[in-house]
């Protein structure tokens, strides 16, 4: 064998060695990388946080203005507080609101077929519908004129249902303000609540409206136990 042959074999082995090393490193690199869905999750969280931050910025702007006004004098202070009160009342559901949304009417099975169906609408059913609507982004919900606020109950009392300690009777008319498409599809999704109720013989009618009015909570608020705390 001549020398050039040894040389060429030597070169080839060297290249092989380098390639092996690169290969090995690439392998390690792949093990370190992250599945694509994790990265997407982060992206989603980030855009949610950004949205939150924008909302906070607006709130801070609003509060800064009110605080500045309040420092100017008694009159302005009163106005600023009144403004803030108005906002809190809207958030709390103490103000009548209007907007696009859907109307859901639910009724017990008609009396002639009631013999076949032992089912009547119970508190839990309404609770589930309302929960579904909140989940779909509803901003205000009322049932038979009773506005649902954070302390509102939907409770079976014998054969009646109480909401806000008021007795309501079927048919139940649920009004929800929000994106009509989103609200509607949340209930009508196949295998969803609307299907479930229809299978039980309950009459469910869902209608979109370009403008609805959801009444304010009509009673006065009373807090006997809860005291506000401000953390600065």
């Amino acid at each position: 064998m001549n020398k050039s042959m040894y040389l060429s074999i030597g070169v080839i082995t060297m290249i092989l060695g380098v390639m092996l090393a690169v290969q090995f490193r690439t392998n390690r690199f792949i093990e370190q990388s992250v599945p694509a869905d994790r990265a997407q999750e982060l992206q989603v969280e980030y855009s949610k946080l950004e949205k939150d931050i924008r909302k906070f910025d607006r709130e801070i702007e609003d509060l800064t203005y009110k605080l500045e006004q309040a420092k100017k004098g008694q009159m302005q202070a009163r106005e600023a507080i009144q403004d803030e009160l108005k906002k809190a009342r809207i958030n709390a559901g103490l103000v009548t609101v209007s907007g696009p949304g859907i109307e859901v009417v639910m009724d017990n099975p008609p009396s002639q077929s009631r013999r076949n169906s032992i089912f009547i609408i119970r508190d839990v059913d309404l609770l589930r519908v309302v929960n579904e609507l909140w989940g779909a982004g509803a901003e205000a919900v009322s049932i038979n004129g009773q506005r649902m606020i954070s302390t509102s109950e939907i409770r079976q009392a014998g054969s009646f249902i109480n909401i806000n300690l008021e007795r309501i009777e079927p048919p139940f008319q649920i009004l929800a303000i929000g994106s009509p498409e989103k609200l509607k599809s949340a209930l009508e999704i196949s295998g969803g609540l609307a299907d479930y109720f229809k299978d039980l013989g309950i009459v469910v009618k869902i209608q979109s409206h370009s403008s609805l009015t959801v009444p304010a909570y009509s009673k006065s608020l009373q807090f006997n136990y809860a005291k506000a705390v401000w953390k600065g």
Partner: peptide, 18 residues
């Protein structure tokens, strides 16, 4: 006014409570 504001804020969840 403050009493009303506090009540509305508690109801709306804008105030922490104890």
């Amino acid at each position: 006014l403050r009493v009303d504001l506090t009540a509305a804020r508690i109801e709306a969840g804008l105030a922490g409570v104890t």
